[in-house]
Design a protein around this nucleic acid. Structure first.
Length: 552
RNA sequence: UGGGGUGUAGCCAAGUUGGUAAGGCACAGGACUUUGACUCCUGCAUUCGCUGGUUCGAGUCCAGCCAUCCCAGCCA
């Protein structure tokens, strides 16, 4: 992975270094284990990981698991697996919940310092006391409770004496602040719920705004890089860091999150897709999750390349999914082995080719890369070609097979149209052609040229497989455009998956192992599915030059 | 309507102390081609949300305005 790129965060760090900062840069990726990582997560991972590496620093994975009602071990395992797959291997793995003891101690310190108090207001009352965007809040009647009473109450909260929601611990800041996050935010709440790691040890849990800066400070994080919706929380982050007075104070910097056209990025909706059965699971290749992209055949490097090219800034942006497609094509064009797959077969009989004879044609595995070598593919009297490569009434500039036309079979002979054969229903059933034995090398000794080259698979040895053509998972241009009262289902494109049965593949594909990627010549990039033998997922189609040329 | 962000081409995005608009994607021409792919050339903002101001000179400084995003969870 290359860490040579630069952005405003690096500029900031460079400035800090010239101003005298000499410590080790330390970043972290802090997902809440409440869902699977997606392409948007990859941006946060990339920024935190590459920044640490660029400066020779450290990168932590920290599960931000302070809310036991939403979190689960299933997600913990998946997150780590995805991170490792991406290659952003963390230097340390921590759990926010492992700091619950310290959080508690710091909360007690805050109480002793008169900076926090136990509040008996209900959730509804607290909301009312908070005021609105334009009106200041008013102080809680419990705000001036004595320190001893607060200490006693907080300990009894911890001891399980009170039911959920009965009391909270609040930071004593400023109920009239124009930043609502500073209007005496709750920092601890009562929750009699067992935690995925802590079990029933706790019945009070710290809230994000209190726990996060503590976690960062305890781990020695220097740069807490997060997405921009936390910008309003930074004053509170700093407040906590300063009140506790950590020796080394971490600093938060925000960047814009990644949005991609046609792509759902909300965990809430992704979970809905899984739970409603609209997709097969978190790794359904139509999903924008990392495990789905992996199953579909995307590479980690293409995903990071995409994130890099999309850039890092604070501007709201909606990046074209075409950029991701470009990144994976660009990489696979250099690395993927070329193979032949006929998606909609049409049988061709070479009437002048000896019956029972088979010869072997040598094809390059990758014309872009000689070191990829060659392979032998069988050739005989009956072949499959792409149905779309024959046109009885060809449009202008049609280069493929047409009545009385001649084309080259990829890597070998020229063949000439002789006649079309129809079945009893009038459907085209096969083509009879003749081949020119002099053109085995794909060139004619008499110098005659052929405009089209089409791909083919020999009938006898062809492997039958299923090709799955995934399209983008559609919503409107942006899910944010969806009105509140609209049904989410209406925004999904039901045609987002096309399954092609009975595709004919060249023989060596019989042994394709799960996860192997190929370029099916003139068709697209495909990946052997990790769950179903004989199924290939289309990662991305090749660019279509036909329509472009035809329209000229 | 309070506060905090952000506004440079269709989509992203560089633009250090003011000196005369990088790059990528997309798109459009052309060359090449035993994948109509790839590759290779070429083109693509007299203009930086708008309006004024300062200046010999402003995307960069100043003022005002407009647009848009975030915040009223005991979620993260």
């Amino acid at each position: 992975m290359d860490e040579t790129t630069s952005n405003f965060i690096h500029d900031m760090i460079n400035a800090e270094i010239s101003a005298g900062f000499s410590g080790r840069i330390h970043t972290r990726f802090p997902p809440e284990p409440n869902g699977y990582l997606h392409i948007g997560s990859a941006k946060a991972i990339w920024i935190n990981y590459s920044t640490a590496k660029k400066y020779g620093g450290l990168f932590n994975l920290r599960y931000d698991d302070t809310n036991p009602v939403k979190e689960d071990d299933e997600y913990v395992d998946a997150i780590e697996a995805d991170l490792r797959w991406l290659g952003a291997v963390p230097d340390h793995i921590f759990y926010g919940s492992d700091y619950f003891d310290q959080c508690y101690e710091y909360a007690v310190k805050l109480i002793r310092d008169g900076k926090a108090y136990v509040c008996d207001l209900s959730a509804e009352d607290m909301r009312e006391y908070r005021g609105t965007l334009t009106q200041p809040g008013k102080n809680s009647p419990y705000r001036e409770r004595g320190i001893q009473e607060n200490l006693d109450l907080f300990e009894r909260m911890k001891g399980g004496e009170f039911p959920d929601g009965a009391r909270t611990l609040r930071a004593k800041i400023d109920m009239s602040s124009s930043n609502l996050n500073l209007r005496d935010p709750a920092i601890y709440r009562i929750l009699h719920v067992s935690h995925h790691r802590q079990g029933d040890k706790w019945c009070i849990y710290p809230l994000y705004d209190f726990a996060h800066p503590i976690q960062d400070a305890l781990e020695g994080i220097t740069h807490s890089l997060c997405s921009i919706e936390f910008e309003n929380h930074r004053p509170l982050y700093d407040w906590v860091v300063n009140q506790i007075d950590f020796e080394k104070k971490p600093h938060q910097t925000e960047f814009a999150r990644l949005n991609v056209t046609y792509t759902i990025m909300s965990k809430r909706y992704l979970r809905y897709l899984v739970e409603s059965g609209l997709v097969d699971g978190w790794d359904d290749p139509r999903m924008p999750t990392l495990c789905a992209l992996r199953r579909r055949g995307f590479t980690p490097s293409s995903i990071f390349e995409f994130v890099k090219k999309a850039g890092v800034s604070k501007t709201y942006s909606l990046v074209d999914i075409g950029l991701l497609e470009f990144c994976i094509r660009d990489e696979l064009n250099k690395t993927a082995l070329r193979r032949v797959a006929v998606t909609k077969p049409l049988k061709v009989v070479l009437t002048n080719y000896p019956e029972g004879q088979t010869e072997y044609i040598t094809l390059p595995n990758n014309p872009e890369d000689e070191s990829a070598g060659t392979r032998q593919v069988p050739f005989s009297r009956e072949l499959f070609i792409e149905r779309a490569d024959f046109e009885e009434n060809p449009p202008p500039k049609y280069h493929r097979l047409k009545p009385d036309g001649e084309v080259r079979l990829l890597g070998t002979y020229f063949i000439r149209y002789e006649r079309a054969v129809y079945d009893e229903t009038g459907e085209l059933s096969e083509l009879h052609c003749t081949y020119d034995p002099e053109t085995r090398a794909g060139q004619s000794p008499d110098g005659r040229k052929v405009k089209g080259t089409i791909h083919w698979v020999e009938v006898k040895n062809a492997v039958t497989a299923q090709l799955r053509l995934y399209d983008r998972l559609f919503t409107l241009e942006n899910l944010n455009d969806m009105p509140e009262d609209k049904n989410f289902d209406d925004y999904l494109n039901p045609a987002s998956l096309e399954v092609l049965e009975n595709c004919k593949l060249e023989p060596c594909l019989k042994d394709a192992s799960a996860g192997e990627r190929f370029q099916f010549v003139r068709t697209g990039y495909f990946c052997a599915d990790s769950r179903n033998p004989g199924v290939f997922n289309r990662i991305v189609p090749l660019k279509d030059g036909f329509s472009k040329q035809a329209s000229k």
